[in-house]
Amino acid sequence: TLFEALYDYEARTEDDLSFHKGEKFQILNSSEGDWWEVRSLTTGETGYIPSPYLA
């Protein structure tokens, strides 16, 4: 399933992933509550992002 970022986000820890509004992601793991592990389709990087920032 693909999701798109609604807002920009700046990583706060080394496990987080910074991203920009409009960036698209593949969800790798959504079992961690509000923090999902994703792969950016723009950069190929993986990390955790806050799920409320996605649509």
Rank of each mutant, 00 (worst) to 15 (best):
I49R: 01
Y7I: 07
S18V: 05
G44E: 02
L6G: 05
L2C: 12
D8F: 03
I49Q: 00
L6Q: 08
N29W: 05
A55C: 13
G22R: 01
E45T: 13
E4D: 04
G47K: 04
Y48H: 05
D15F: 15
L6S: 05
S18N: 10
Q26G: 02
S31P: 09
F25Y: 14
A5N: 02
Q26D: 14
S40I: 14
L41K: 02
L6M: 09
T46P: 00
G22T: 02
D15I: 12
G44M: 05
T42S: 11
E10H: 08
I27C: 04
Y9R: 03
T1G: 08
E23F: 02
H20Q: 10
T43G: 01
Y53R: 12
L2S: 04
E45N: 09
K24M: 13
Y9K: 10
D34V: 08
K24G: 03
T46E: 06
I49E: 00
E14C: 12
G22A: 01
D16S: 13
G44I: 15
L2W: 12
N29E: 05
T42L: 13
E45G: 05
D15W: 15
Y48M: 12
Y9T: 01
S40N: 14
S51N: 14
V38S: 00
G44A: 02
G22P: 01
D34W: 12
G44C: 07
E37F: 15
Y7C: 14
D16N: 09
T43Q: 01
Y48S: 03
D16F: 14
L54S: 07
E32C: 14
S31Y: 08
T1A: 12
T1F: 12
D15S: 13
E45F: 08
G44F: 04
G33Q: 09
H20E: 06
F19T: 03
T1L: 13
E14L: 10
E32K: 11
H20M: 09
E4F: 08
D34E: 10
I27A: 02
G33F: 07
L28V: 06
E4R: 02
Q26L: 13
W35F: 08
N29D: 10
L2P: 05
E10M: 09
F19D: 06
S18C: 07
E23R: 00
E37V: 10
K21E: 03
A11R: 06
W36P: 02
S31E: 09
G47C: 09
L17A: 02
D16W: 11
E10G: 03
S51Y: 10
S40K: 10
K24I: 14
A5F: 13
E4P: 01
F25Q: 01
